[in-house]
């Protein structure tokens, strides 16, 4: 597939994620939108890795070019998993304290 298609698909997913972050007040939804954005980036990384691999294959049949891209995705998933645990813990604590997941209550940044 032309790489352009993947680029635009990723941008679209990413933009949807941003719109979600901007329009929703529920902390959990916002968090989910962030995951969505991460996945958009992952998809693009994999697409690029395959693109480079294809280019390298033209000269060398045994090439491993592009592996790092996919490993990057792997590490992003690792980090995302760690992030989700901590993030969800924070949201739970927030809910326990103010009995809401509305980010508008989190306006302490002003002070």
């Amino acid at each position: 597939m032309p790489i352009n298609y993947y680029i635009f698909l990723s941008i679209a997913l990413f933009a949807i994620g941003i719109v979600g972050v901007l329009t929703r007040r529920n902390a959990i939804i916002i968090f989910m939108c962030i995951e969505l954005m991460l996945n958009a980036v992952n998809l693009l990384l994999v697409a690029f890795s395959k693109m480079h691999h294809m280019k390298a294959l033209a000269t060398d049949a045994a090439t491993t070019v592009g592996t790092d891209g996919q490993l990057f995705v792997f590490f992003i998933m690792v980090v995302a998993a760690a992030e989700v645990t901590v993030g969800l813990a924070i949201i739970v604590m927030m809910y326990r304290n103010i009995h809401s997941v509305d980010v508008n209550f989190l306006n302490r940044l002003k002070h």
Binding site: I18, L22, R25, V103, N104, L106, N107, R108, L109, K110
Partner: peptide, 14 residues
Amino acid sequence: LQSGQVANYILLMV
């Protein structure tokens, strides 16, 4: 502008 609302900040950031 300094509402303290994260959402506003993100909006401005975008």
